[in-house]
Amino acid sequence: MTDRPRLAILFNETNEAPKLIKGIRRLRPEAEIVAILSPRAPRQDIENEVDELIILELSPLRLLFTGGFPGLIRGLRKENFHTFVIRYNTLKLKLLTAWISPQKAELWLSHGTVTAIEKSTFSVLKDHFSRKFTGWIRFLTYLCRVLFTRVK
C-alpha cells in the first residue's frame, strides 16, 4: 500500500481501456490506478498499464444466480478506494458506485467529459431520472422543430 490515493476503474467492458487509463494518468497523475475486471475480460491491454488488477465476477446475471452480489459490494467497500470510476451512464453502475461508497465517484464518458456521481441511493435515482426527463424534453422539442418546420 502507498500513500497515493487509490483510484479504481470498473471495466465492465474493456474497449478503449488503454486510452482511458492514459487519460486518467494525465489528469490524475498522483493516483494509484486499480483496474477491476471480470475473469473473462481480455487483460493484455490493461495489466501492464495499471498499478493493480482486481479480478471479480461482474456479470449481473451470474451474481444474481450465485448470490454473490452482497459479497461483491462488501469486497469493494473494504478496498477503501479514494475515487471510483465508471465508464457508462447506466443506473445500475451508478447505484453500485453509491453502495460501494468511495470518497469520490466519477463517470468518465467516452466523449471526454468527467462528471461527479451522487453518493446516496436516493440522490443517484433523483439525478438519473431528472437528467432523463430533461433529456426527453429537449429531444422532443428539437424533434417538433425538425418535423413541423421545413428548411428551404
Partner: peptide, 12 residues
C-alpha cells in the same frame, strides 16, 4: 437521441 436522452451532452 441516445446522447440527448442521457442528459450528458458534450462536443459534437
Amino acid at each position: 437521441r441516445a446522447n440527448l436522452l442521457s442528459g450528458h451532452t458534450a462536443d459534437y
